[in-house]
Amino acid sequence: MKEYLQEFRESYRYTPSDFEKLGGIWPLRVGQNKAKSNYIVGPRVIDCYSLHFIISGSLFLSHGNEYVKLTQNDIFCLHPHIKYSYSIVEDDPDTPLRMFWMAFNGTQASPMLKYIDVSEERPYLRNRMTPELLTWVKTLFQLIADKENNAVIRLQVTLYNIFNMLTPLTVNSPEKAHANEWLKKSVDFINTHFTEGITVAEAVRVAGVHRSHFYNEFNRLLGMSPMQYLMKLRMERASGMLKNTRLSVTEISLSCGYLDLYSFSRAFYNYYGLSPSEYRAGVPVKVNPIDVRSTTKKRNKQNVIFL
């Protein structure tokens, strides 16, 4: 490592190829350091994400509105465009502050962090470093340091393995494991096939639980009924297509899983308080979609096709 004013540091930059950017996540920088007694970074912002792995020692992290002390085996993440700073807690020759870090970006970067329970509000994980995880972090560091031209796939595998090892073990009982499993299966099914005219009954069959239990648990855990969730996905898709494409209302209705224009137009009006054509023309939405759902039955009595 090279000596600097506040630390000993070794770091390497990485420029992802167009091929790598077709994936969901790619590395930008890796580094390791050993801090001196005057070590402080920031305050500043960055344009990417950066995971820091504390190997020894401790530091104070200020990130957005968060201020926290982190120690050996903790991990923290810097988020883009959020002001941060961090500094050494104390200079102990026996346990100096040492870290590895990796900066990354990509369309999956934010969802990946949420998947491992890291967010802007709580950008750290307590006591999550393990010898195996450290091995993967060092492997990523070495691959980028060595600048191997044929290491693209290995880089991707290594990066995803690091996140895989940080995946939280949140299931504490067989009952909870079963609930998480069937709910995820049903939500994944709806998310994947909502434009294909599926019904809630099909999602129930995928879940493999009793219909009433499905409705109760779905509503409790997602905050809405299965039908409301299905409607939300279809209406968000429809509104985007009305704004951003030149497809006819009929074509959009068929593309969103409706069998005919009448069913789509009625559902759209019940959700937004406007006909699809009014929405496309830029007429202000009359009601909040959440409020509209409670009046769906009343509005379903209208026998008008909104063209």
Results as ranks from 00 to 15, higher is better:
residue 181 E to L: 03
residue 140 L to S: 07
residue 177 A to R: 11
residue 123 P to Y: 03
residue 132 E to R: 12
residue 151 A to R: 09
residue 154 R to V: 10
residue 160 Y to P: 00
residue 152 V to E: 14
residue 134 L to M: 15
residue 140 L to K: 05
residue 158 T to E: 04
residue 163 F to V: 04
residue 134 L to C: 11
residue 171 V to L: 12
residue 171 V to R: 07
residue 188 D to P: 07
residue 166 L to A: 03
residue 163 F to S: 01
residue 183 L to M: 14
residue 177 A to K: 09
residue 174 P to A: 11
residue 146 D to A: 12
residue 181 E to H: 02
residue 135 T to N: 12
residue 148 E to I: 13
residue 157 V to M: 13
residue 124 Y to P: 01
residue 138 K to I: 12
residue 143 L to W: 01
residue 153 I to A: 15
residue 131 P to W: 14
residue 148 E to Y: 10
residue 151 A to F: 10
residue 128 R to H: 09
residue 169 L to H: 10
residue 144 I to K: 05
residue 139 T to K: 09
residue 177 A to L: 12
residue 125 L to K: 02
residue 179 A to F: 02
residue 126 R to G: 03
residue 169 L to R: 08
residue 132 E to N: 13
residue 181 E to D: 11
residue 128 R to D: 02
residue 139 T to Y: 03
residue 165 M to S: 03
residue 172 N to Q: 11
residue 182 W to G: 05
residue 167 T to P: 00
residue 137 V to T: 03
residue 139 T to S: 08
residue 125 L to S: 01
residue 139 T to D: 07
residue 181 E to T: 00
residue 162 I to G: 00
residue 159 L to R: 02
residue 149 N to T: 09
residue 178 H to C: 03
residue 184 K to A: 10
residue 172 N to I: 13
residue 143 L to C: 02
residue 179 A to M: 10
residue 125 L to I: 04
residue 159 L to Y: 05
residue 169 L to Q: 12
residue 133 L to Y: 09
residue 146 D to G: 03
residue 176 K to N: 09
residue 186 S to G: 09
residue 174 P to Y: 09
residue 123 P to D: 03
residue 124 Y to C: 03
residue 171 V to M: 09
residue 164 N to I: 00
residue 126 R to Q: 07
residue 178 H to Y: 12
residue 130 T to I: 06
residue 155 L to V: 09
residue 131 P to I: 11
residue 135 T to R: 14
residue 187 V to H: 06
residue 124 Y to S: 06
residue 172 N to H: 14
residue 158 T to Q: 03
residue 171 V to I: 11
residue 140 L to D: 06
residue 183 L to F: 00
residue 129 M to Y: 02
residue 185 K to C: 04
residue 152 V to Y: 05
residue 158 T to Y: 01
residue 166 L to Q: 00
residue 138 K to T: 12
residue 123 P to T: 06
residue 128 R to A: 14
residue 186 S to D: 05
residue 158 T to V: 08
residue 187 V to A: 13
residue 188 D to V: 09
residue 174 P to G: 11
residue 182 W to R: 06
residue 164 N to T: 04
residue 177 A to N: 08
residue 134 L to T: 14
residue 178 H to L: 10
residue 129 M to R: 04
residue 147 K to P: 02
residue 164 N to V: 00
residue 169 L to A: 10
residue 156 Q to W: 11
residue 129 M to V: 06
residue 166 L to G: 00
residue 138 K to Y: 08
residue 123 P to L: 05
residue 172 N to P: 01
residue 147 K to I: 06
residue 183 L to S: 01
residue 129 M to E: 05
residue 123 P to V: 02
residue 167 T to H: 03
residue 141 F to D: 04
residue 131 P to G: 10
residue 178 H to W: 08
residue 127 N to A: 07
residue 139 T to R: 07
residue 134 L to Q: 15
residue 123 P to I: 01
residue 124 Y to T: 03
residue 142 Q to S: 15
residue 180 N to E: 15
residue 131 P to Y: 13
residue 160 Y to W: 14
residue 161 N to Q: 15
residue 127 N to G: 02
residue 172 N to E: 11
residue 163 F to Q: 01
residue 166 L to W: 02
residue 126 R to M: 08
